[in-house]
Nucleic acid binder design. Structure first.
Lengths: 333, 333
DNA sequence: GTGAAAGCGCTAACAG
DNA sequence: CTGTTAGCGCTTTCAC
């Protein structure tokens, strides 16, 4: 199954080297033999063996991607963008999914290294000096996305702290004074890499602290994975100064929260406001339109690939500026 | 960068063959030298080169996936399931996306073959004898998903014709007599492989024809890519016998339609009913709850991988039974 | 313009 | 138990 260069060489009565010259448009071959070889190759449906080629050439033209999963809309978009951009640059993608399992993440990375990918795009769930050392020892370019690891690797993302700060100010500006902050990942503080989620929380806390509005209350923070249950135990209609907002550290939580509020007959934003983050595309079909923070996942994907490709082809890891974001004024705040 | 078996052999003063025995837990090596070799390998962070291994062993333990894109929720789910199941079986996934481009699909397949994937999971957009011949000549196991190609390749999916037939009967049973059928892909009939979409349409047409209910009218069929615009030109509140339903050949269209109806102030299902297909997970956040046809994409992914793996490891392509489906009774019909 | 040979890193078959 | 050798398929260098 599958004819090889050597076999073509025999069939044509030439050497493998000559076949190589013909097949790869190299110089130093007469047009006549070249055509003859190409003819035979076509007739036998010659397909080059990429493994052998990459072994000889030293490049696989493959990039590895390590993500949680594809359930989150954003990741699907990101993967899509990565594949497209990678393809444009001549790379094929190895997709590996970790399900947020830290050991599995290491396994995935190891597999990619064994397969000698030219570079890796990583949404890290691990962190810490050991992990960094491990990553550094790979001798493989790595670009991090959506979750910062360290300045030893380029990072593609936004300034989440500032963005959530802006969001908080926006809410305060609209009369919100009491807040419930939902962010289950915070429960993994110190264990997993939840940099982005921490940044968002910090940005939120900053804003509340810095607010010159005296009536802003201490926020209630929900770290429970069963955040809807936790929410159920709170009296959301309790009277008090200013309005109440449920701040979700990402849209996925916000959607669940809105479903819950709907079943409880709690009106948004009349009774309580809801703030999201990510602007996932699902939102365009949901009423009321969620107020959220938008950034461009497609751009993330492209930037990550561009950066990785530049690193692969160049010497050092290029710097990537943080991406932009904006608050999407919906109907829930 | 990266130590090789040969180098380890030199360092340990043994032959490459012995190192291979130690590294791969083979028999015929003394515990002592084995430990010594493993020691050195670990110290130098030995990582096997998968390309070389696969070249020598004849298997890549890689499966290729060819899909449109990841925008459709279903595909993201499918990809996720494929990756997970493939990983369980020891395979790594090459993901290629075609954007529904028929030439690009061929390119993707060729790339995967060059990379000597052990098998391919394909959502085909091409069809016809030429394409089938091309595919057959690959000498690579291929399993088709979601879009049937021919009985030469296993197919993972449901009986779409019957499912849409059931859906139509369900609507007729609920008093619907006038139908608008939305299915832009039908415009590519004869060109692209739209098997599934045709099946759904056929099932729908069957049901209307076979209905013993005399008042069922000929459906209006929208094949226009700008189906919302087409819909705008129709008087949806026109009086007539029975109720009117907009039947969408997949949920993605239904969501757009519902958004449109909302902006027009047309109530669902009071003024007009809406039927979907696929039961994408987005639906759980959309009101009113869309009536649709459910099938299990996760199962598709698993079955496809299982089938492919069985074929790779066995002789012939295993048969896969059609998967189940069910109508999800929502609030829009 | 073409051929021969070495090598990429690993495996497997055969000697010893 | 260990070493040797011959590949896997392609590339590349150096002769001719």
């Amino acid at each position: 199954m599958g004819i090889t260069i050597k076999q073509i060489a025999e069939l044509c009565g030439v050497s493998p080297g000559t076949v190589d010259r013909a097949l790869n448009n190299r110089t130093g071959i007469s047009e006549k033999t070249k055509q003859r070889i190409l003819e035979v190759a076509r007739a036998h449906r010659y397909v080059p063996d990429h493994r052998a080629r990459s072994l000889a050439r030293g490049r696989t033209m493959t990039i590895g991607v390590v993500l949680f999963d594809l359930y989150n809309r954003s990741f699907a978009q990101l993967t899509n963008a990565i594949e497209r951009r990678a393809r444009e640059l001549g790379y094929v993608v190895h997709l590996t999914l970790t399900g947020k399992n830290r050991d599995l993440e290491k396994t995935c990375i190891r597999q990619l290294v064994e397969r000698k990918v030219d570079g890796i795009i990583l949404f890290p769930v691990n962190k810490g000096p050991d992990f960094e050392a491990e990553l550094a020892s790979l001798d493989t370019p790595v670009v991090t996305v959506c979750n910062y690891l360290s300045d030893r690797w380029p990072y593609v993302g936004i300034d989440d702290r500032k963005a959530m700060n802006d969001a908080a100010c926006y809410m305060i500006g609209r009369g919100y004074r009491r807040f419930i902050y939902i962010c289950p990942p915070l429960a993994f503080r110190g264990q997993a890499n939840i940099f982005t989620q921490e940044q968002r929380w910090n940005g939120f806390a900053d804003a509340l602290r810095d607010s010159d509005c005296a009536s802003v209350a201490q926020p209630v923070v929900i770290r429970d994975k069963h955040y809807v249950d936790a929410l159920r135990r709170i009296d959301l209609r309790e009277a008090g100064p200013g309005r109440t907002a449920i701040v979700c550290s990402c849209d996925a939580y916000a959607l669940e929260v809105m479903n819950f509020l709907k079943t409880e007959g709690i009106r948004v934003p009349e009774d309580v406001g809801v703030m999201g983050f990510d602007n996932i595309d699902t939102l365009q079909y949901v009423t009321p339109r969620l107020t959220t923070v938008h950034y461009d996942m497609e751009e993330f994907g492209e930037r990550a690939v561009n950066c990785l490709a530049a690193w692969i082809e160049g010497e050092a890891a290029p710097d990537v500026p943080l991406s932009g974001y904006r608050i999407v004024e919906g109907e829930t705040i």
